[in-house]
């Protein structure tokens, strides 16, 4: 790809032709504050936080500004600073100050932007504070929609449109009353929302937040256990529990995307109904037994039914290694090719 050279704050950078100034900066490790930008989405230019000065005369947002050879960008020009600071101050003045109890505390793009532009108590005090009082839409079992925290970056709307092509949400009402809502502004579960949670995963604040979001103590890279697409996931673990699932952006299959089952359907793992001990039928009733007892009973029985009297049904749900051993067991130990599984269902 053709490269162009541009200067950002005195630093010469090479950037792909066709990329934007913000992309070029971020790709080169330079932070330009931004809120409504998301690498998966077409730049929208709505938050106006990423303003820069171009060639010493024009103010422009950097997220939609194509790089040009010889372009000179300033991110710290006084006018840029003033506009950016007012914009962020306006957002903060209309945002609840409940950071410590917020699920996105310390992982919040608004916090990041606010601290970068240097919001102070003094400057904020000048503003008329008002936080939108709208009921939280808690109809979805997996996530809540809290409009008071929404910065209207539109990332959720664009995710649902550009990536998911579901269009369950869009802007409703206008001006300061604008919110993200569904057709007819009904609860999200009464829309065509598929609960994939892609918007929740991308929300820069906690306007869209999982109902339960314990922070994991560690994450384990794995593969989703549902359909045959094989999405890469990161299992969030805390103690002995799987507490969350994230899409693996490095996985070539899903590049971070997940569906409702993949993202939220993990609670069966620690479900109290799980079988935790072998069961053996005694007097017509299944009762707990030790592994030794159970396996000996199986071994004894199987030993008597080798060959045609035996069949094994392996599973499309277990690993290759599990399946390999089952077929090996059937063929080598049970001496029959009577092995199949539910591939046809």
């Amino acid at each position: 790809m053709k490269k162009v050279t541009l200067t950002i704050d005195g630093l010469q950078l090479r950037a792909d032709e066709g990329s934007t100034v913000l992309q070029a900066a971020l790709a080169n490790g330079l932070y330009i504050p931004n809120l409504c930008n998301h690498p998966d989405l077409v730049p929208a230019g709505l938050c106006r936080v990423c303003v820069v000065k171009v060639d010493d005369w024009k103010i422009s947002i950097s997220c939609k500004l194509p790089v040009k050879e010889g372009m000179v960008i300033s991110t710290e020009d006084p006018e840029v600073q003033r506009i950016r600071k007012s914009t962020v101050e306006l957002l903060v003045a209309n945002h609840p100050m409940t950071c410590l109890t917020c699920s996105r505390d310390a992982n919040c793009e608004l916090q990041r932007v606010a601290s970068y532009v240097g919001i102070t108590q003094e400057s904020l005090k000048r503003y008329r504070r008002s936080v939108r009082q709208l009921p939280i839409d808690s109809s979805n079992p997996f996530f809540d929609i809290d409009h008071s925290k929404c910065v209207l970056c539109g990332i959720c709307v664009r995710t649902c449109d550009e990536l998911q092509n579901i269009n369950a949400i869009d802007y409703v009402r206008r001006g300061v009353h604008t919110t993200v809502g569904t057709l007819g502004n009904k609860p999200i579960t009464q829309s065509c929302c598929e609960s994939c949670g892609e918007c929740v995963a991308r929300c820069p604040v906690a306007a869209l937040a999982p109902k339960e979001s314990p922070i994991s103590m560690r994450e384990v890279k794995s593969v989703c256990t549902y359909c045959g697409v094989g999405c890469g996931i990161l299992l969030g673990v805390r103690g002995e529990k799987v507490v969350g699932v994230r899409g693996d952006r490095d996985n070539p299959v899903n590049r971070g995307s997940l569906c409702v089952k993949g993202r939220y359907g993990f609670k069966f793992i620690n479900h109290p109904d799980r079988l935790t001990t072998p069961l053996v039928r005694k007097d017509g009733v299944l009762v707990p037994a030790s592994w030794d007892e159970a396996l000996e009973r199986v071994a004894a029985n199987f030993s008597e039914h080798k060959g045609e009297q035996f069949a094994a049904l392996a599973s499309a749900r277990i690993t290759n290694e599990d399946n390999y051993l089952i077929q090996k067991f059937t063929r080598a130990v049970m001496q029959t090719n009577n092995i199949d599984h539910c591939a046809r269902l």
Partner: peptide
């Protein structure tokens, strides 16, 4: 489009008669 997470693998592994 295979339906189950490892239906491809269980076929690959000879889970077939």
């Amino acid at each position: 489009l295979r339906g189950q997470n490892n239906v491809q693998g269980s076929c690959d592994m000879g889970g077939l008669p």
